[in-house]
Amino acid sequence: MAFRAALVTFPGSNCDRDLAVALRNASGEEPIRVWHGNAELPEQLDLIALPGGFSYGDYLRSGAMAAHSPIMRAVVEAAGRGVPVLGICNGFQVLTEAGLLPGALLHNAGQTFICRTVPLRVENNHSLFTHRYAQNQEIRIPVAHHDGNYFADEATLDRLEGAGRVAFRYLSAGNGSRRDIAGILNESGTVLGLMPHPERAVDHDHGGIDGLALFEGAVRGLVAA
């Protein structure tokens, strides 16, 4: 069956086009574009993707306004039914604000916008999104954020670590994230949020293709399932 992904665009999203290209290249199918004001998602989705950017101008807190937009009610409901959700950068911030992932993304510790390719370690290769990586594989993925400083209380961090829910860890972060966490999974492993941009590393012209396995994993994992 054809892979059906919905890609949500909020006012201020700016990585939605790149994410659409990455999903199309991995699946051979064009993702269905959905606007933030839609109250309903298409049916029978294999994936919901929330792109990077500065939704609602980062008003109040990054991702806070988007988390309460009409489409997010549908996303939360779909995630509850087990529909996989991928949030990248601002999409990760939206997922934490919407309560689909624990913790919060604070201003970077150095108060600067960080835009560079960083080394990451794949901490859990058992999830839908990471199964095409090797355990502890080191990959290089670009980051571009001002609010990427992952915060959660110690008990939550211990719980995440204990359950293998840290998907990616920075090998050199520089944004102040607790325990160098770059990406986390929800309890069932079907929701992934990460600050780095895998959609910016899917073509040799990008300077690397280490992001490709994430999209291929999501597509093939679902098709095989």
């Binding site: 919060a104 604070l106 209380d153």
Partner: peptide, 9 residues
């Protein structure tokens, strides 16, 4: 609790 503050932080 719903919007103006993020109770995590």
């Amino acid at each position: 609790r719903g919007l103006l503050a993020n109770m995590v932080i």
